[in-house]
């Protein structure tokens, strides 16, 4: 648990710093939730609500990355999930029927889970590199979403219960936050109460040792990609319900990149092995808060791309042992000591 806390220290510090900046610029209201119309509001609650789709995707991505994989198709799957549900709803005569909304959601989730499993089969059984296997759907997926919507942007009536998924509240807490929290807890239980988490980390940490220990890595890999697809579909539903429409082209744009970024900020290494669902969650909130922070400190919203680029760059460099060695060299006492390896260890401790 100590190592776990250490991993989370940096993300938490960054988040606290960002929140502090916002409180300084906009006052304490930034963090304190307000209650209007029996529902929680306020800047920070809104950040959490807006971040829910990203969190769902980032959680799925965390598991995939733990197996030494990556899923580039989540943005496209997001668009497909949104397209299926919205198109089904606007195609029917009564958009307010609860049964319709439930079946639309169910079908969207089943399809996205199948898509995820397909990615997993490509990786586990066909032996195709994850980045290549999921690239196919990254390219074709938005086309499929447009095929479903006929190239239009289906707009669901505001009266449809579907929009509750994005806009509603339960016990004053916005529904997207509920869903994201439930999925977080469910995945945490699924991976940490069963042996799934440990076996995932084993497969990602050392595939050959796992094989020799008798682990069925193929089935586990497919399961993980399936979960990732399901999460992406669910994220798409929330996003579409919030907007009341499904934009096949722009819905979930770059969300795969944001998700990977959140996973990396949260302390899970892209090389697989140990994963941290809580770290990913903090990473997602950091990204969400960063967007608000940019505006609150008086920069134009265009800066968020630049800010994200800087974050990716810094995180990538900090995770590189070569960079740390090069960067820390001037701080080492011994001038030009040939034994760099032991010295590096000493720094690490």
């Amino acid at each position: 648990m100590n190592a776990y806390a250490k991993r989370l220290m940096w993300p938490v510090l960054i988040l606290v710093a960002l929140i502090a900046v916002n409180i300084i610029t906009t006052g304490i209201d930034f963090i304190v939730p307000s209650v209007n119309d029996d529902r929680l509001g306020g800047a920070f609650v809104n950040i959490l609500r807006r971040s829910a789709p990203l969190l769902l995707i980032a959680l799925g991505m965390t598991l995939v990355i733990a197996t030494k994989g990556i899923d580039l198709s989540v943005g496209a799957v997001y668009a497909i999930g949104a397209a299926i549900a919205c198109q089904m709803i606007i195609d029917s005569s009564d958009q307010t029927a609860a049964g319709l909304v439930f079946s639309a959601i169910a079908i969207a989730l089943v399809v996205t889970a199948v898509i995820g499993a397909w990615n997993g089969v490509m990786v586990a059984y066909f032996g195709i590199q994850p980045i290549v296997a999921t690239l196919i759907l990254m390219i074709a997926g938005r086309g499929i979403a447009q095929l479903i919507t006929g190239g239009q942007i289906p707009k669901v009536q505001d009266a449809s219960p579907f929009t509750e998924l994005g806009r509603g509240a339960f016990l004053t807490v916005p529904i997207p936050i509920w869903i994201a929290a439930l999925v977080l807890v469910a995945l945490a239980l699924l991976t940490r109460r069963t042996a799934l988490g440990m076996l995932l980390e084993s497969v990602g940490g050392n595939p050959e040792a796992s094989r020799l220990a008798g682990i069925r890595s193929k089935g586990i890999t497919v399961l993980v990609y399936l979960v990732c697809g399901l999460c992406a579909g669910l994220a798409g539903l929330i996003g579409a319900a919030n907007l009341g429409s499904a934009d096949a082209n722009n819905g979930g744009q770059w969300i795969e990149l944001d998700a990977i970024l959140a996973v990396v900020i949260g302390g899970t290494a892209l090389l697989g092995g140990r994963f941290f669902l809580l770290g990913t969650t903090i990473g997602v909130v950091i990204i969400g808060t960063l967007e608000d922070t940019i505006i609150n400190v008086g920069l134009s919203s265009q800066w968020q791309f630049t800010a994200k680029a800087i974050v990716v760059f810094v995180v990538a460099l900090l995770q590189s042992p070569e960079f740390r060695g090069w960067f820390l060299k001037p701080f080492k006492r011994k001038p030009a000591a040939p034994a760099t390896a032991p010295a590096e260890e000493a720094v690490a401790k």
Partner: peptide
């Protein structure tokens, strides 16, 4: 090359950075 950063991640920086700068 020198910092052994994965090409995917390193070039992702460019994707974000230059889209942002273009918009600016």
């Amino acid at each position: 090359h020198y910092f052994n950063v994965q090409p995917f991640i390193a070039t992702l920086v460019g994707l974000f950075l230059f889209r942002g700068l273009t918009l600016q």
